[in-house]
Simulated assay, not measured.
Amino acid sequence: MITIIQRVTQAKVTVNSIDIGTINTGIMALLAVEKNDSQQQVDRLLERILNYRIFADENDKMNLSLRDIQGGLLIVPQFTLAANTEKGNRPSFASAASPELGRELFAYVQQRATSIYPDTQFGQFGADMQVALINNGPVTFTLRCINS
């Protein structure tokens, strides 16, 4: 499982000209499911996102987490993050989850995230989405959770 997290002052995702997820200060996470992922990776990844210290404290040091600042979380499915781009001019999606597994695990992400962190919004799996954000910093990190 791969995610790109971005510290934002605002972010939104739109489908068919309708805003389906909007947050102010917080984290926007682009999420890709790989073919060997399971609910265990989802649980670990959500805990990392919620506790990753990327917000400034009173000394302007990155010591505060999303939970600490009680910010918003916007999770957007993006299977292209699972692409292998090491060779050639066309990405390979051999490591990406099947659409069925991706849909199943993204549904689990939605259920689990809202149960542990209610201020969570989502993109729509399989939809053509437009994503807008103001990246604060900019601060952007890649997080991976693999089978252990």
Rank of each mutant, 00 (worst) to 15 (best):
G71Q: 08
E47F: 00
A29H: 05
M62N: 04
A127G: 00
N84S: 15
Q130M: 02
I75D: 02
G71A: 07
K35V: 14
F79M: 08
E104F: 03
Q70W: 06
N63T: 15
Q78T: 08
Y52K: 05
N36V: 11
S95N: 14
L64F: 08
R53H: 12
L46T: 08
V42W: 05
I54A: 02
L101F: 07
L45D: 01
A29F: 08
N36T: 15
Y52W: 06
R90D: 06
I49E: 02
A113R: 00
A107V: 05
L66F: 00
R53C: 09
Q130S: 07
G72Y: 07
S65I: 08
Y52Q: 10
S65C: 09
E86N: 07
A83I: 01
P118Q: 11
S92E: 14
G126H: 08
N63V: 07
D68H: 03
S115F: 01
R112G: 04
E86V: 00
K61S: 13
A113F: 03
L101M: 13
Q70T: 01
E34N: 11
G71P: 10
I116Q: 09
S115Q: 11
R112Y: 13
D43T: 07
D57E: 09
G123H: 09
E58G: 04
N84C: 11
I116S: 12
A32C: 15
A94D: 14
G126M: 10
Q121E: 06
V33M: 08
K87Q: 12
L50T: 04
L81T: 11
A94R: 15
D37Q: 13
S98I: 06
R53E: 13
R48H: 11
